[in-house]
Amino acid sequence: MMDTLIRPTMTLWQREIIRFYRQRSRIVGALATPILFWLLLGSGFAGTFHSGSESGGVGYAEYFYPGTMIMVVLFTAIFSTISVIEDRKEGFLQAVLVAPVARSTVVLGKILGGTTLALGQALLLLAAAPFLGLRLGVGDLVLIVAILFVVAFALTTLGFLIAWKMESTQGFHAIMNLVLIPMWLLSGAFFPASGASGWLRAVMFVNPLTYGVAALRRSLYAGTVSVGPDVPTLAISIFVTCGFAVLTFLAARSLASRPLDIGLA
């Protein structure tokens, strides 16, 4: 167990962390971009955003705050799974695949690495909470960290699923712009579902990330401000988010267990 599962997983996890800290531009890119978005959009929309019942009576900076955190998680998760493609190109992945470890170890090591990084970056942003006037108790914090962990895990796994068969990082960027960014835009992170048109609301309803954002929003603003109508309840949000994480992981494990024919010539 220790030799065949835990230590191999830990070693692959550790490698992700070391690599991240040795590529400082990644830290800056994954954290600075969303913060910049938050500051620019937060103040830019401050005037036009109707802080009425739709947003639960909060200003746009407050409304956009959980969305920004999810964006940090998404960016870090995506960039950490791009390394799946690099690993294959550089040959590192082949060496791992011929080692006597289960494929779920290979998958888990990679994903937990990305999850940890995404969670770490999001926690840096969480440190801004007091400046928004948020008073979070220990219980709130535990819940917020747990939710961020599950969202980070699910998004990293989603990135892994996309990257696994991808031959180039350019292809990955295309998918990112086509799927992942819209997924984030239509998750309630950027604007509330209540103000959207019918079909957009339907998309937001089936978007699993909607529930991650809702869970985070509800746990951040629990008891302080109302989060507005059309935001799923905390229980439903947590349930859907956990389900999303489990399903993506099972898919990733099954995908990685199949022979990998691309790029191993």
Binding site: D3, T4, R7, P8, M10, T11, L12, Q14, R15, I18, R19, R22, Q23, E90, G91, F92, Q94, A95, V96, V98, A99, P100, V101
Partner: peptide, 28 residues
């Protein structure tokens, strides 16, 4: 297995690469 293209992680040191390899093979 020694592949045609070295399967080393270039961002890691030589020793770090070896330690990871050892862990994958049950050595520690």
């Amino acid at each position: 297995v020694v592949f045609q293209a070295p399967s080393l992680d270039v961002k890691l040191t030589v020793r770090e690469n070896m330690v990871h390899q050892g862990h994958l093979y049950g050595l520690h």
